[in-house]
Design a protein around this nucleic acid. Structure first.
Length: 298
DNA sequence: CAGTCGTGGGG
DNA sequence: TCCCCAAGACT
């Protein structure tokens, strides 16, 4: 045997061949893309589609080609450059991760999974993704795409459970090729299959290389039966107000101060407005400079 | 562990 | 139009 146990071997070959033929060309997958590039892309891709990440990613890497470059900039500049990607705390965490990498790891993105996990903004998924994609290590990489593919292919369910379970980790590990290099390509290949073919809403099973062995299809594609999946409410919430406030602050020049009344214009309810602004300050996304004057953190 | 945290595009 | 959801992390 080479890398894989017999039953999974055919599955590996099939998915890897599909990936070789259909993988998207993305900048963080180029041979020139190092661990930092992979890490930046992973932060930006948390809950944000590839298409919207691309332009911001390109500018970001030109401006801050290494962790030390970002660490040397004010955190507010990271928030500004983040633009409208959403969840701007990710920008703050990426800046904090760059600082930690610079201070604790000599400016090199760590290779060790536990050290990656210890970085701000790096959870189970991102640690495994960087270790796998950038450092070519053998890790189960469980993101929403992979979980959905395995739910269908292996478990016969249309959707995975709400939170990642031990059973899912066992499945992912059991299917992981032995050879690290193969495992790393397998991880990104399964993810790509979920992103392009085995999608959440309308999977294109006619184009799926493993449709013939998909447990969900073989069961007749039964509709999801679990508990109703949580819808994300947004309109009228603090999140929307925070977004509007931060948009105003991003639009200001770096050293320009924004007066309270400018912020007051974004939302009619003063109570909610104040709560949202306080939250942004507490999160470190906004810096109060003086009485009624704000800016992005310098 | 369920809630919170942005934003925009496609069905 | 409205609703879903997109390479999650943190509390």
């Amino acid at each position: 045997m080479t890398d894989t146990a017999a039953p999974a071997d055919s599955l590996h070959r099939t998915v890897l061949a599909w990936y070789a033929a259909h993988a998207r060309e993305l900048p963080w997958r180029e041979p020139s893309a190092g661990p930092w590039a992979v890490m930046v892309s992973e932060f930006m891709l948390q809950q944000t589609p590839v298409k919207r990440v691309l332009p911001v990613y390109q500018e970001w890497m030109e401006r801050w080609p290494a962790p030390a470059d970002l660490a040397a900039a004010p955190s507010g500049e990271a928030v500004r450059a983040w633009g409208r990607l959403g969840y701007p705390r990710r920008a703050l965490r990426l800046h904090a991760a760059a600082t930690a990498i610079t201070e604790r790891h000599g400016g090199e993105v760590p290779t060790d999974h536990a050290e990656l996990l210890a970085l701000p903004g790096v959870g189970e998924y991102t640690a495994a993704a960087v270790a796998s994609f950038a450092h070519r290590q053998r890790h189960a990489v469980l993101d929403t795409n992979v979980r959905r593919v395995f739910a269908r292919l292996v478990d016969g369910s249309e959707y995975p459970p709400t939170a990642t379970t031990a059973a899912e980790r066992r499945t992912a590990n059991a299917l992981l090729p032995e050879r690290p290099e193969t495992a790393a390509t397998w991880a990104v290949a399964v993810m790509e299959l979920g992103a392009l073919v085995c999608t959440a809403r309308s999977p294109e099973c006619g184009r799926c290389p493993v449709a013939d062995r998909c447990a969900w299809r073989l069961a007749g594609s039964p509709p999801y039966q679990g508990p109703p999946r949580k819808g994300q409410t947004y309109a009228g919430t603090d999140r929307q107000v925070r977004g509007k406030l931060l948009a105003v602050l991003r639009a200001a020049e770096q050293h320009q101060l924004v007066p309270q009344r400018t912020l007051d214009a974004v939302w009619p309810d003063p109570v909610q407005r104040a709560r949202a602004l306080d939250g942004l300050v507490a999160d470190g996304l906004v810096e109060p400079v003086g009485p009624g004057v704000y800016r992005l953190p310098g």
